[in-house]
Design a binder for these strands. Structure first.
Lengths: 220, 220
DNA sequence: ACCTCTACTTTGAGTAGTCAAACTAAATAA
DNA sequence: TTATTTAGTTTGACTACTCAAAGTAGAGGT
C-alpha cells in the first residue's frame, strides 16, 4: 500500500504522462511544478519510487510509470472522481468546492466505501468535470476532445472542463457551462483572442482564449 | 490545527479522563495502552502537547486536558460520531464496520462537509452506538448509564454500547441488541458470571459479565 | 530504613518526507 | 568551439513521529 504521499506522486506522473510529447516520459520539473515541491525533493522520491518498482527513472531524462505505478495511479483517480461525483450528486455540494475535498478524501476512503459509493451512483462513467472514471480493474475511457480555443464557429457540446480552480468553475456555473451543455461558437476574434458563444438561449458571452483552453468540446 | 496524530492523543486523553478516578487526570500508561504506543513515545508527546497548550502535564503524575485540548478532542469526537451515523443511516453500511472507517475519516473530512452531514441527518444527538454527539460549539450530553453487568433483574432499555470491536457488534446485531432496544434481565448467576436476558419476544439468551459490561442500560 | 517493583523518563537511533544551497550535465547560443 | 543557461542532482539539515533499551522516582512491602 503506497502512502498518500506516494499516491500523489503517482497520480501527478500519470496525468502529466498523458500530455507528454516524448512517449509517456515525464520531466521531473513538471512533477515538482505540479506538486509544489522542490526539484531535489522530487529527485529523491523518484529513486525511491524506482526502488519500489512504481516507476522507471533515468537520471536527467525523466520518469515513466511502470505497471504497478499506473495501476495505483488509476485507483487514486478512480477514488478521486467517484468522490467528486458523490459529493455533487448525493451530498449536494457545489461543483466548484468538490475538488479540494476529494484531494484529501481520496487517500482516506476504504475500498469498501468506494464500492458503496459506486453502487449508489449507479457506476457512473464520468465525474462532474466530465473526466472518465476508471473501473475497479483499471480500465479508463481515453476519448479526447478539442479545446474550444482551437475550434471554428459551429455547434458543440461541452464534454469536459480540464481545470480545477474554484473561481473559474463558479464562473462557468453562473453561465450554465456544465459538461453535457450544448453551446454555439458564434464568432472569434483571433487578434483580440476573444471568443463569442451562446449557451442555450441566453445572451451571448465573451470568453478569452486561456479560459477557452479548458473547455473541451465535441462538434454536433 | 493539530495534526491527526495529535488529534488521536487528545481524543484518547479525553475519553480516558471521563473514567478517571483522580479528577480528570490520566496516567500516561493508560494513553500508551489505548493508542498502542510505547511509554517513551507518549512521554515525549506529552511534553509537546504541553508546549502547544493542549494539556497540562506533571511528570510522573499524569496529564489533564487544558481548554484548547478539550475543545479539539470534542471536535474530533463530533466528527467521528457524525461520520458513524452517516455511514449507517445514509450509506447503509453495517454498524459493525463503521468504527474503523470513521477512525480514519475523522481526520480527513472538512468542516463544510461535516456540517452538510449534520444537516442531512437532521442534527442527530447520538451515534449508532448510542454515544452522544457534541455540538459544533462543543456541548455534549454527559448522561451516564449503568452497565448491564451491574444491575438486578427487571426491564431495561439499551442506551449505549461502549465497545468497538466488530465481532462483538455483529453478535449483538444478530440478537437485535441495538441502542433503543427494550430488554429484560431475567436472572443472573453471580457465581458463574452469566446473565440471562430476553430481547423482545425472542428466546432468552445467555451473556457473560464481560460482554454485559459494555451494554449500558436504563431502568424502565 | 531498606528493598523491590512498577510506572515513567531519558537517550540514541530510525523512517518518511521535506527544503536550501552547492554542484553538474547537457542543451543552446555565441 | 567555448560560454552560458537550464534542468536536474547531491549534500546536509530539519520536522514529526516512532521504538528499544537503559535509567530513575516513588509507592508499597518487609
Amino acid at each position: 500500500m503506497p502512502s498518500s504521499t506516494v499516491e500523489d506522486y503517482l497520480k501527478a506522473i500519470f496525468q502529466l504522462s498523458r500530455k507528454s510529447t516524448d512517449g509517456k516520459r515525464v520531466a521531473l520539473g513538471a512533477v515538482s511544478e505540479q506538486l509544489g515541491l522542490t526539484a531535489g525533493t522530487v529527485t529523491t522520491m523518484m529513486k525511491h519510487l524506482q526502488s519500489e518498482d512504481f516507476v522507471s527513472y533515468e537520471p536527467r531524462r525523466g520518469v515513466t510509470l511502470r505497471e504497478s505505478g499506473e495501476k495505483a495511479a488509476l485507483q487514486v483517480l478512480r477514488r478521486h472522481r467517484l468522490i467528486e461525483a458523490f459529493l455533487v450528486d448525493i451530498m449536494k455540494l457545489d461543483w466548484a468546492d468538490v475538488h479540494e475535498e476529494a484531494e484529501i478524501l481520496e487517500h482516506a476512503i476504504s475500498d469498501k466505501l468506494i464500492q458503496r459509493i459506486d453502487e449508489m451512483l449507479g457506476h457512473p462513467s464520468h465525474d462532474p468535470h466530465g473526466d472518465p472514471i476508471p473501473t475497479a480493474t483499471g480500465e479508463m475511457d481515453n476519448a479526447t476532445f478539442a479545446a474550444l480555443a482551437d475550434v471554428e464557429s459551429g455547434h458543440y457540446q461541452l464534454m469536459r472542463v480540464s481545470r480545477d480552480d474554484s473561481e473559474y468553475l463558479k464562473w462557468l456555473s453562473s453561465h450554465s457551462l456544465h459538461p453535457g451543455q450544448a453551446l454555439q461558437l458564434v464568432s472569434r476574434d483571433h487578434f483580440a483572442g476573444v471568443i463569442t458563444l451562446k449557451v442555450a438561449d441566453a445572451e451571448p458571452i465573451q470568453i478569452g482564449e486561456t479560459a477557452a483552453q479548458a473547455l473541451l468540446v465535441k462538434k454536433c
